[in-house]
């Protein structure tokens, strides 16, 4: 009986896990891509993010907002990657440089994505993430602050400055 009960819990948890992946997988991938500017790496960090999310599910930890949790995990995973990146050799770093995205995407769309990504890559990482989360994902400053461990006010100020910097890049 215990076995069956546990089996059902596993199935429910798996369903919840896959639902979250279907719902937020693309958004997390975009977030990772904007942070690391490399498709393959962004996919790896996306996968790592969901694996860590499974850890929460299997441990039965309380989750009140799946989306926030996923962004928080992804943000930390990307930070870890930056730490590791500092340790790798120059050659390796060159290999893990900027790369175009989605080979299955039509060339002209891909070019448009790459242009935007290329442009914003000149901004600070903090600027990029706040621009993406606000203008692409439509999240309010309060939620972004919760995810990134900052106050809503800090996020608003950062967003304002980041928008100005991007405008400068585009129109100067």
């Amino acid at each position: 009986m215990a076995y069956v009960s546990r089996y059902m819990k596993q199935k429910e948890a798996e369903q919840q896990f896959l639902d979250a992946y279907h719902q937020f997988g693309d958004a997390i991938f975009r977030f990772c891509l904007v942070k690391v500017s490399n498709q393959e790496l962004a996919e790896d960090i996306t996968q790592e993010t969901f694996i860590k999310y499974w850890q929460y599910l299997r441990d039965g930890k309380e989750i009140t907002n799946t989306r926030s949790l996923l962004y928080t995990i992804a943000n930390n995973a990307a930070k870890d990657w930056y730490k590791k990146k500092k340790a790798v050799s120059l050659d390796d770093r060159m290999e893990v440089g900027k790369e175009p995205i989605a080979v299955e995407t039509p060339a002209e769309v891909q070019a448009a994505y790459n242009e935007v990504l290329d442009t914003i890559s000149e901004l600070e990482e903090g600027d990029r993430e706040v621009l993406l989360l606000t203008h692409v994902e439509g999240l309010p400053p309060r939620e972004i602050g919760e995810m990134l461990g900052e106050s809503a006010n800090t996020i608003s100020v950062r967003l304002n400055r980041a928008t100005k910097r991007l405008k400068k890049l585009l129109y100067v």
């Binding site: 997988g25 693309d26 991938f29 975009r30 891509l33 904007v34 996919e43 996306t46 995205i101 989605a102 080979v103 299955e104 995407t105 769309v109 448009a112 994505y113 935007v116 990504l117 442009t119 914003i120 621009l131 993406l132 203008h135 692409v136 928008t163 991007l166 405008k167 585009l170």
Partner: peptide
Amino acid sequence: EKNTTEYLHSLKDISLS
């Protein structure tokens, strides 16, 4: 200002292959 945010909107279509 508007164009700047619209410029970013194209990123919405980026998804996993």
